[in-house]
């Protein structure tokens, strides 16, 4: 599997996802600068987290209007797999590959803490290796992760199995205390119509190393590997 990571001015989780792909999973990994249009024939495109353009204007707004993203849009439309994490998710919403928007956290604060995620659909390229009943413990670290979309879109996301992850309590229940940014229906990540594009606020790359205490995030990468192999 070939992985391409797109770097924007101000990305700060670029090193983390590169390490995730290259060192933890030993995948050939290319790094593409935001001004480049050539994605170098990836099987998976990773849009890293961070503060592209300092989150100025709106998080992800300026990054979503760059040559690299134009190529990512073409790649996704032809069925290519794209995973946007945190700021990457914000970019995917801003460029229109995913519906809705990520608003300021309801607390108005940046929040960094471990949360529990429940997969909404296990039959997707990004979730197929998650065992039944398994909750993933993955950290969030963002100021704008409060997912919002109109009612029609919300209905479609639910009925089409496009809610990839929800924030839940350790017991697996929807609980405002465990949805600290106020996302609608506890949405932590959503999929495109064809389910080849996933945007999620939590950082699986930060929960993929035993030395750091938790490896639940590996399941997402492993799902992609298994999807591409089958």
């Amino acid at each position: 599997m070939r992985v391409t990571v797109v770097q924007f001015l101000g990305s700060n989780c670029d090193h983390d996802v590169i390490q995730w792909s290259k060192d933890i999973f030993r995948m050939p990994t290319e790094v593409v600068w935001y001004t480049e249009s050539d994605l170098r024939k990836p099987d998976l495109v990773l849009l890293p987290g961070g503060f592209s353009y300092g989150d100025y204007l709106r998080p992800g707004a300026m990054a979503s209007r760059t040559p690299a993203i134009e190529s990512v849009i073409d790649f996704a439309k032809s069925g290519g797999l794209v995973l946007g994490i945190c700021n990457g998710f914000q970019i995917l919403c801003e460029c229109g590959l995913l519906p809705g928007a990520l608003l300021r956290n309801s607390s108005l604060h940046f929040i960094c803490r471990d949360l529990y995620l429940k997969a909404g659909n296990k039959k997707t390229p990004f979730t197929n290796k998650i065992p039944d009943g398994k909750l993933l413990r993955v950290p969030i670290a963002h100021g704008d992760g409060n997912y919002f979309c109109d009612e029609e879109t919300a209905k479609a996301l639910e009925s089409e199995g496009r809610v990839a992850f929800r924030y839940v309590s350790p017991e697996g229940k929807i609980d405002p205390e465990w949805n600290p940014n106020g996302s609608m229906s506890g949405i932590a990540g959503i999929l495109s119509e064809k389910k080849n594009v996933l945007g999620m606020m939590p950082h699986p790359e930060r929960a993929s190393d035993k030395a750091l205490g938790c490896e639940d995030g590996r399941l997402i990468f492993e799902s992609v590997i298994s999807h591409l192999e089958s």
């Binding site: 204007l57 709106r58 707004a61 300026m62 209007r65 919403c93 801003e94 519906p99 809705g100 928007a101 608003l103 919002f148 979309c149």
Partner: peptide, 9 residues
């Protein structure tokens, strides 16, 4: 349309 406004919100 191109940048300053996110028509979704």
């Amino acid at each position: 349309r191109k940048l300053l406004v996110n028509a979704v919100i």
